[in-house]
């Protein structure tokens, strides 16, 4: 198995607050890897650091052995990493199609490749096709999530970083989104999935890491994590309790 993305001893600070305290993780080619953790654990910080949006205090991030520490955020996507950020972050006053076109901004001159990528996205998310000329701010939450993921696929990345795609969505939609994540993975795109919905995330992931206040405390195969007592108590039981409420 070849290592695609490798994070080693990563420390990230917000001013004097240390949000990531030396974490290491790997995503192999073709894998779905999930990072579980409560609110404020540092999950988004991890993804934002990989994407070059946050300065790295120490540690390394590598894609296929190439160091990314000094690569600017706008160049990261050229390397093959695409990031669908938390909270959708669609460009609300732009149309659905304009959002998708920006997803392929790095290849905007190759009109054929852009329209092919768009067709692939439309076949994953047919609803986006019928909404293509609608302003994305007027989409429902689920549709915006689909747009964020579709936009992320437009650059045909090697790896897609997904930050809480199920956040605030109805159970049926969550199910659909996770199904699509699997389909994306079947197309050969590796996935680094950040989630609070541990049950769902572990059901599609190959491996997982548990992040607690800036440290990785547990890691292993998804099937092992599912039966891990600490994970069950803290994340699976908790999720079930929340659901019942």
């Amino acid at each position: 198995m070849t290592v695609l993305l490798k994070v080693e001893d990563l420390h990230i600070f917000y001013d004097s607050i240390e949000a990531l305290k030396g974490i290491s993780l790997e995503v192999n080619e073709g894998e779905i890897v999930t990072v579980l953790g409560a609110n404020g654990a540092g999950k988004s910080t991890l993804l934002r650091a990989i994407s070059g949006l946050l300065p790295i205090h120490s540690g390394t991030i590598q894609l296929r052995g190439e160091g990314l520490n000094n690569v600017q955020a706008y160049e990261i996507v050229i390397k093959g990493i695409s990031h669908a950020p938390e909270g959708r972050k669609v460009f609300s006053t732009l149309t659905v199609e304009e959002n998708l076109n920006l997803g392929a901004y790095i290849r905007r001159k190759d009109i054929k490749a852009v329209s092919e990528a768009k067709e692939r996205v439309f076949s994953l998310f047919p609803i986006l096709k019928s909404r293509r000329s609608q302003l994305s701010g007027t989409l429902s939450g689920g549709e915006q999530q689909m747009l964020t993921m579709g936009r992320g696929l437009m650059s045909t990345p090697r790896i897609l970083l997904l930050d809480e795609p199920s956040l605030g969505l109805a159970p049926l939609l969550v199910k659909q989104i996770f199904q699509i994540i699997r389909e994306i993975n079947d197309q050969g795109i590796s996935i680094l999935l950040v989630e609070q919905n541990a049950r769902k995330a572990l059901s599609i992931a190959d491996r997982g890491y548990v992040l607690e206040t800036g440290n990785i405390t547990i890691s292993g195969l998804a099937s092992d994590l599912k039966s891990n007592q600490k994970v069950q108590e803290a994340y699976l039981g908790g999720a079930a309790l929340k659901k019942r409420k």
Partner: peptide, 24 residues
């Protein structure tokens, strides 16, 4: 144009625009 969309996107959300590969 897509470059125009990139300008409008940068006005809305610079970080997310950078994720698209837009050089501010």
């Amino acid at each position: 144009t897509t470059f125009g969309a990139a300008i409008r996107a940068s006005a809305l959300d610079r970080d997310t625009a950078a994720l698209m590969g837009i050089n501010i």
